[in-house]
C-alpha cells in the first residue's frame, strides 16, 4: 500500500470489545450457544443446566433475545437440543479479528465491525435456510477499501458458516459516499465468486484473514 488512506483512525482498546463473557455478566442478552464457554457458565451457576448428563451438547437458553434466561424450562432444552443456532456474537467473533488491509489492527478494534450491526436469523436446523446481515462502518466516508473489507468478511463467513446461510453485507447508512455501489458489488454472487478466482486479490484477503482465530 503506497499511500495510507486513513492515516489516523479511531482505535478501540481490545479489552473494550464485546465478548461472550460481557453478555453473561450483563445478563441483558441470554446467549444462545455456550458450549465453548462451559467454565464461565459454571462460575455463574446457571444451575438448571445438567452438564454432567450431556457434557458435549449445551442447549440454548432461550428462543430469542427478549425472554429472560431464568425462565427457560427443561422442555425448551430438549426441543432445541439437536439444533445449535448461531448467534451474532459468534459471527462477531469470526469477523472482528480480520485485519484491516492498511492498519495493523483488527476490524473490531477499528469499529468497522460492531456487534449491534450484526443480525442473524437462524433456528439451527441444518436443513432450513438461515440469514446473516452485517452492516460495516468504514473508517472514513470515502474509504476506497470498503469493498475489499466487505469481500474479506464475505470470504471469511462463506468458509466458516454452514451452507444454509445467506450472507448480506451492507455499508451502514450514511457512512460511505458510494454506499449503493459498494452494496451492489458486495452482494453480487457472480462478481464475488469471480473476484475470488483472482489470485492476487485472494492473496490480499488471505493476509487479512491470518489474524482470525
Amino acid at each position: 500500500m503506497s499511500e495510507v488512506i486513513n492515516a489516523n483512525p479511531t482505535i478501540l482498546d481490545v479489552n473494550a470489545l464485546p465478548t461472550r463473557e460481557d453478555e453473561l455478566n450483563s445478563k441483558s442478552q441470554a446467549p444462545k450457544r455456550l458450549n465453548h464457554n462451559i467454565d464461565t457458565l459454571l462460575r455463574l451457576s446457571l444451575t438448571k443446566l445438567k452438564l454432567n448428563e450431556s457434557p458435549t451438547v449445551i442447549p440454548a437458553l432461550t428462543d430469542d433475545e427478549t425472554s429472560d434466561s431464568a425462565s427457560a424450562s427443561a422442555s425448551d432444552f430438549e426441543e432445541l437440543e439437536e439444533f445449535e443456532p448461531i448467534d451474532s456474537q459468534e459471527i462477531y467473533d469470526l469477523i472482528a479479528t480480520i485485519s484491516d488491509p492498511e492498519h495493523p489492527l483488527t476490524l473490531g478494534q477499528l469499529a468497522v465491525i460492531n456487534l449491534p450491526d450484526i443480525k442473524v436469523i437462524d433456528n439451527g436446523d441444518p436443513e432450513s435456510m438461515a440469514e446473516v446481515v452485517i452492516k460495516i462502518t468504514p473508517t472514513i466516508t470515502h474509504c476506497s477499501l470498503a469493498t475489499l473489507i466487505g469481500l474479506g468478511i464475505r470470504v471469511r463467513l462463506e468458509r466458516a458458516l454452514p451452507a444454509r446461510f445467506r450472507i448480506t453485507i451492507l455499508v451502514k447508512e450514511g457512512t460511505h459516499q458510494s454506499e449503493n455501489q459498494v452494496n451492489k458489488q458486495l452482494n453480487d454472487k457472480e462478481r464475488v465468486f469471480a473476484a475470488c478466482e483472482n489470485d492476487q486479490l485472494l492473496g490480499v484477503i488471505s493476509t487479512m484473514l491470518k489474524t482470525c482465530k
Binding site: 436443513e127 432450513s128 451452507a163 454472487k189
Partner: peptide, 8 residues
C-alpha cells in the same frame, strides 16, 4: 421450496 436443499 428447497429445490436444491439449502443451496441457491
Amino acid at each position: 421450496e428447497l429445490a436444491h436443499g439449502v443451496y441457491e
